[in-house]
Structure formats: structure tokens, C-alpha cells
Design a protein around this nucleic acid. Structure first.
Lengths: 196, 196, 196, 196
DNA sequence: TATGAATGAGTGTTCATTCAT
DNA sequence: TATGAATGAACACTCATTCAT
């Protein structure tokens, strides 16, 4: 008697996640081209061929990991979008959430930081809209904070976040992420307290 | 009439620089593994074998390009190190110099931004000291500006710069680098004018 | 209520024939190596594993399809072997039968024409005798028609038939099979009417 | 000092021909997909990689062999095109030339007969015009011989030739090619001597 | 100094076949 | 009887590197 459809689905689900985990880590550590399918398979203790039972090809595997990242990211930040709090509070929460996410899922962020550079096209196509929404939201908050040039301010915040990401990812043990995040967040409190 | 030893040395030097130029561009455009030695050779109008006459192997060639980058970077910033100007002026000059360098040598920066992730080890080993000196200088300036936590402030500035770099490199036509740089520089003027 | 042994046997037989049908078509369309077992299984709406329940391996499956072809071919031509008609009539009937078979079962013939080259060894071993019998019968008819060299004449007829087959299979819509067959058959009438 | 351009060209020419010879034989013996590049390389006593120094990919290698075949074929039959002899003489010469070519270059013909089936598209695209010219010429000759239906007669001759090819290629030692060719050629003499 | 033919290990990918269920 | 997850050997193809000239 063969396994039931459900049993098969479970096996598929588990194996798929195992492979994705390994791929996430190796892509993040070594980069896309320097990570071979064989390496992924060996690390996951399965045969090279099996990877292709679950993923069409290497690129699709990469994209699936990227999707996984963005889904997780979306979940993490979702609450902030509808928040009724004042801008400086939301920004602070945003920064804290980011920091916590980076601390908890450093592999995820290492993967993203390394790979986002190389797969700009896919990301723009797939998540450009989402990124646009984020930028829009932040710009609105900068307006609320009465910055002279809210859009530039939003872009600057985005750049700071990227910079922090990179540096934290490169040396998580040495980068004083808590203090830096606190410092950045404080900057916006000041802004509200003492607007120019 | 045989060439003199000096002539030979000149030829060597020129050839070497040609190869380095081409390698810089291709590594920056396509990444390290996607750039083949043959591609570099063909673009430089020389034979594959000759590349190995000048560089031990592909990795060494890459490292030499990295060295070239850092040497140029060092030259660019050297004057600022001995400047007697007040901190906020030096910082502004630093940011302007960086911006001008990025605009003028976008290939250089694209190369560095793409590759720095992959060759962290080499960079730390080779240029860790120099980066440390930079950080030290910036921290001193932050002290001069009476920031409560000058070191964190220095680290934050470094992160902002990295973030701006990445984003500018990714979309040089769309990133408002002038405004962002100006905005960042202005932040330090304010600090001096209105210390807390 | 468990099925009876007979019911099982029926199921087996039906499944087997389904697989053979699909294999015939796909082998004929794409060739032997370009047709995967998985493809056959999917087209037959069964699992990959089940194919191996019915056929030892891919090669054996192919051979079984070849057997199917020759069995059908034998059935088609059987009547002609015992015919009491004059040679030119039998030859004409033979050619018509062939033409009708090709028109009706073009898949069969496409399969055979594509694959016969690759499995010459099996065919010689398995059906060499039968082919010999056919050649013997045709030679006898050529004798009856008083050809100077009946054996050569038989071989020539065989070659013509093969050539017609190939060309018809390659472009069934464009090859004027009716006229060519008629023309070939007429040749033997002439022979009888006007012997040299 | 490197080799001169001429020396390099010679090496390339020789190696290329060696590879083509081996490919011709193996493709003819085993078919296209059943012949691996590694097999070709090993048989030619070179490395797998070198094959790709000379041929873009497997398909291009195959096409080059096909081109080689048609070039040779064209050369062989060229003289017949402008012949002023009567049709039956030209047909006889054509058949003799074909027979001699098959005897002399059996590997070539084995290759062509096996592969022409699989690469119809390329052949039609590349040599369709040439084949059209041949058919046109033969039809004209059949007209000269006052056949009732010259076109059908031309198609029939083409089919006979194909059939002879196949059968000779399958068993060159046993197929009485001389007698069959003679017999076919004689058919057209009769036609002229005793037109209906 | 300079060339490019040559190698061989490695890459992504496919697929016949096995086997636990 | 029936399933499809799993394997492993093969495949086409690439490329850093070597080396005779």
C-alpha cells in the first residue's frame, strides 16, 4: 500500500524546508555562485538529485529562499503599518523590530544582505511594490515630523538602516547594534521635541 | 635593437595596469565568479596565458584590484587626516570627497561594493588597520563635537556612509546623493551650533 | 469483497496495454532516449514505479512495444501468405495492405521507422526468421513472374517498400503514397502482361 | 616565442578534423543522444574540454558533421548536373556514383541514414533547396523518358534510393548492392528502348 | 614576453531504477 | 497493486590553470 497523499505532502514539506534552511545558510555564507547544489545536498544529507525533486533549478531555489525572507519580513513589520502611534514612536518600533529580527535571524539577514545586490532584478519585480509602500509610509512619517525635506529624510533613514545591516552582519559580535539603533531612534525624538 | 631593461619594466607596468583596469570593470559588473580570465584577457586584447604572467592566479588578481582601490582611496582622503579645520568642516569635506569620488569613479565603487562582501577576510587582514585609523580619527572629531557617545556616533557615521554607497551604486541615476550628503553634513553643523 | 485472481489478471493486462500504447506513441514521437519513464507514466496517468511493476526496465518495455508491432504486422499480412491468387495480385494486395496499415496506424509506423535503426540487433535476433520467410515468399512470386533474377527482384521490392515507408512517415501530408504504391504495383502487372 | 598564426591554424584544422571523424563514426554507430561528448573525446584521445574549444556545443558538432556530409555529396554529384547525356545514362551514372560513394564512405552514409531522421528540421532549412534542385532535375529526366507521370516516377526513384541506402547500410556485407543498382538502372534503359 | 591548445576538476541538471510504505 | 521519495551515475558544458612553442 502506498503512503497516503497527506503523508506524501508532509514528507515533501519537511524535506523542502530542510533544503531551504541549508540553502539560506550556504548562500548567505558563500554567495550564490560559490554555493554548489552538491554542497547544499551534502550539507542536508541528501542526494544532489533530490534537490531537483523539490526545486526546478538553482535559480528557483534561490528565489524561493528570497520569497521566504520577504514573507517573514512582511509578517514582522505588518503591525507597524496600521499603527496609530506618533511617527517617532513608530520609527523607534520599526528600528527595534529590525534589530530584534537581525539578532534572532542573523542567517536570514546575512543571506539577504549578500544576495540582494546580485538579484536586484528579481527583487524589484517581485517586491518593488512592497518596498515602495514602505518608502511611502516612512516619507509620510517624516512629513508628520515636519522635516524640511521628508523624502530625502526617508531615503536617508533607509540608507542608515542598510548601513547598519551590512555592518552588523559583517561582525555581529563587535557591532554595537543596540547603541546605534538607540542613537538613530533618539534622533527622531529630538526632532519632535525641538522642531526647526 | 633589444629593449633595455627599463623599457621592459615599463611594458610590464603598462600591461599590468591595463589588465587591472579591465578586471576592475568586469568584476564590478558581473561579480567575481561570473568573470572568467578569458573574458578579462579578451577585453584587454591579450592572451589568457599572459594574465598568468602578471598575476599568480585569479584570486591574486582580484586582491591586486582591491589593493588598487584602497591605494586610490587612501590618496583621496590623505589630506583630510592632517587638516587643522574644525571637525564639522572636515566631516563635510570627507562627505563631499566621498561623493565626488563615487561620482567620478563609479566603476571603482561598484567593484568595491560588490566584492567587499566576498573578500571580507582579505580586507580585514590587509586594511583592518587603516579602517581602524579612520574610525579613530572620526571618533576624535565626534569628541570635538561633544557628542555624548563619540564612538557610537563614529560607528553610525560609518554605517550611514556605507548605506549611501550601496544605494547610490545600485541606482546612480535615481539616488539623490547630493541632497542626502548635504543633509548628513548639515547634521554636524547643527551639532556644533546648538550642542546639547 | 476481494477481487478474484481473474479480475487481477484483467487489470494487469489492461494496465499493461495502456502503458504500451503510450510508450509506442512517445517513443515514436520523441525517440527512445528522449522519452523518459516518468513521461510515459504521467501520460498514462500512473506512477513511475508502476511501470517497473509491469516491465523489467526501459529496454524491455521498448522491446515489448516492438513485439506488439510485429505481432500486429504479422496478423495484417497473414492472409496473403496462403493466398492462391497469381503473384501480381498478391503483390498488389501486399502493397495495398501496407499502405492502408500505414495510413491507419501511422503512430505504429513512425515508431517502427524511428526505432528500428537503434535496435537492429534485437530485431534481427527476434524477427530475422520471419523476415526471411517474407523474403522467401516474395522471391517465389518473382519466380512465378519469370524475372531473370527473382531474388534480386525481391530484395529490390523490399527496398522500395522501406523507402516508401520512410518518406511517407517523414511527411504523410505531402508524400503521394497512393500514386507511388499504384505505380509500383502496376510494374508487376506489366511484367506478367509483357514478359521479356 | 609563441607559435605563428599559421602553426595555430594548422593545429586547429587537424584537431577539428580528427574530432569530426570520430563524431561521424560514433554518431553513425550509436545515434546522436547515445553518443556522449566524453566518448568522442576518449575515442579521439583528447580531453572532454577540448571538444568545446573546437565546437560550440554538441548540436553544432553534429551540424558540422552533417555539413561535411552534404559538401562531400555535392562535390560527388556536381558533374552530373550539367551532363548533356541522355536521361537514362545520367540516371545510371547517378546510381553508380551513389553506389561507389556508399561503398567508399560507408561511415558517412551510416551517419547520414541514422541521423537524417532525427534532424529533419536542420536539413530542410539548410539543404532543402539543394534537395529541391535534385528532385527537379530527376523529374525533368523522367519527362525526357516520357513517363506518364514524371513527378511520381521521380519520387519513386528517390524512395528506391533511400530504401537501398538503408538496407545496404544495415548489412553491407550481405546486401547485393551491385545487382540491385544494376537492376534499377536497367529499368530506365528499358523505358527508353520500349516506351509505352 | 606572449600565445592559445590542452587538461581536468567541477557545475547544474536529468533520469533509470529502487524501495519503504 | 500502487505510490512517489530517494539515489547515483551519467550528461553537456565551463573554466582556472599549465605548458610547449
Amino acid at each position: 500500500m502506498p503512503r497516503t497523499a497527506e503523508q506524501f505532502a508532509n514528507i515533501r514539506q519537511e524535506r523542502k524546508e530542510e533544503i531551504l534552511q541549508v540553502a539560506l545558510r550556504l548562500f548567505g555564507e558563500k554567495g550564490y555562485e560559490a554555493t554548489s547544489i552538491d554542497m547544499i545536498a551534502k550539507t542536508a544529507n541528501i542526494s544532489k538529485g533530490l534537490v531537483y525533486n523539490y526545486f526546478e533549478n538553482k535559480q528557483k531555489l534561490l528565489e524561493t529562499v528570497l520569497d521566504m525572507f520577504f514573507e517573514k519580513l512582511g509578517d514582522t513589520f505588518k503591525a507597524l503599518y496600521d499603527s496609530a502611534e506618533p511617527a517617532e514612536v513608530i520609527i523607534r518600533q520599526m528600528l527595534y523590530t529590525l534589530r530584534d529580527s537581525m539578532k534572532a535571524d542573523i542567517e536570514f539577514w546575512q543571506f539577504y544582505t549578500r544576495l540582494s545586490f546580485q538579484f536586484t532584478e528579481y527583487l524589484k519585480r517581485q517586491y518593488g511594490a512592497e518596498m515602495g509602500r514602505w518608502m511611502h509610509k516612512v516619507t509620510a512619517m517624516m512629513e508628520e515630523l515636519r522635516f524640511a525635506n521628508p523624502q530625502i529624510e526617508a531615503i536617508k533613514l533607509g540608507s542608515i538602516i542598510d548601513g547598519i545591516c551590512i555592518n552588523y552582519i559583517l561582525a555581529p559580535k563587535f557591532y554595537p547594534i543596540d547603541e546605534v539603533i538607540e542613537n538613530v531612534a533618539d534622533g527622531f525624538e529630538t526632532q519632535r521635541a525641538d522642531p526647526r
